[in-house]
Design a binder for these strands. Structure first.
Length: 109
DNA sequence: CCATTGACGAAGA
DNA sequence: TTCTTCGCCAATG
């Protein structure tokens, strides 16, 4: 297993319940801007203890779908954690987006 | 080795 | 603002 994939898993495991992070932000945080697609590839074959449902695309939309067994699973898991969708497949990244150390959006609210 | 594909993203039109 | 195209890069056929 590649070092990159291990780093992805390690970081995704740090995402708090009820928060999400994008593929690109994940890649950048790991020092590999441009490897957003590889993040997706790594998550496709990730261990079950990795909260992969908390990873969405840069628009705050769900891309996984079938990787979770069914298209709706990811959304249901997020809603179960308190994430509310502004539209069927659209959530608010400004509100739920999370990043390792730097600017944690909306410390309040 | 070459072409295609994909849980993406940014730049153009 | 929405739709296309292009760049990325590992994996597959």
């Amino acid at each position: 297993m590649s070092r990159f994939a291990e780093d992805v898993y390690r970081l995704v495991r740090c995402v708090p319940v009820g928060r999400v992070i994008s593929y690109g932000a994940l890649a950048r945080a790991l020092g590999h801007p441009g490897k957003a697609r590889e993040v997706g590839w790594a998550l496709f074959r990730c261990p079950s203890d990795v909260p992969a449902h908390r990873v969405v695309n840069r628009e705050g939309r769900l891309s996984g779908g079938w990787a979770f067994g069914a298209p709706e699973v990811q959304r249901l898991r997020l809603e179960a954690e308190g994430v509310r969708f502004s539209a069927p497949e659209q959530l608010d990244l400004e509100r739920y987006g999370w990043q390792p150390v730097e600017s944690v959006p909306f410390s309040g609210r």
